[in-house]
Design a protein around this nucleic acid. Sequence first.
DNA 1: ATGATTTTGACAACCATTTTCATTTGCGCG
DNA 2: CGCGCAAATGAAAATGGTTGTCAAAATCAT
Lengths: 135, 135
Amino acid sequence: MSNRRDAVHAVLRQSEGFRSAQDVYAEMRAEGAKIGLTTVYRALQALADTGHVDVLRTDDGESVYRACASGDHHHHLVCRTCGRTVEVAGPAVERWAEAIGSEHGFTEITHTVEVFGTCAVCSTAARPARTPSRA
Amino acid sequence: MSNRRDAVHAVLRQSEGFRSAQDVYAEMRAEGAKIGLTTVYRALQALADTGHVDVLRTDDGESVYRACASGDHHHHLVCRTCGRTVEVAGPAVERWAEAIGSEHGFTEITHTVEVFGTCAVCSTAARPARTPSRA
DNA sequence: ATGATTTTGACAACCATTTTCATTTGCGCG
DNA sequence: CGCGCAAATGAAAATGGTTGTCAAAATCAT
């Protein structure tokens, strides 16, 4: 039944960071799974709707998904090089958003917060290619 | 030369909230301006690159632009009904993002923060959404 | 089994955005 | 002026992720 959906979910679970639909589809096909792109999209949407995975948009408008450990509201710290993602909580930010909103007479406040950076591994690996001037 | 670019910029200045490229293009054509969609896109990109306008992505992946009053780093409080936008500063959030990042060994931290809500006007006039942004 | 219902997936349709490329425009210079 | 070059422009075609279509296949209930 939701056999396919579970398969999709499984792929996400095995992933470190966010994956795109096309990405997941490609991997599944590469592993020999018989599944259509349409189904992957539908599974991903369903999973997102039921809150089983988190979604966000990349800078170029692509939707990327991730199976998160916590079902609670949280944000992400994403390495812009390797994509590794850390789930972070930010009570302070939640309160700030609420405060800012009501301060301006807004209700039903929601917010999107994502933090990007270069993780320790990637920053040491990709050091500034400066010519060793031996000085 | 940047005659078109200025024209595009002008349209954004007159707008209350974020506008899409197609949107801006439509308005300009409606006003009789002779301009191509391609040029609008290019102008918007250029404006964004030079930091003259802010860009963000809607939930459905469309890019929307806004001429912001402040050139400094700031975030937005956007009414999800009428689109009215308030520029807000959030020193606390900036510090939080930095802290979270370095706490996990990440460097070159950047972040995206957007707050959505229903503004006072729209929440009282809880009726089938009509855009009153036009006086 | 048999028909009903849901799921699937190949393929076409969408649509914002980008690319292509030929034409126009701005402009310095002889 | 007129010539030519280079940047700007825009119509049309290409791109590419995502969604819609619809008939075939899997699943279920009786």
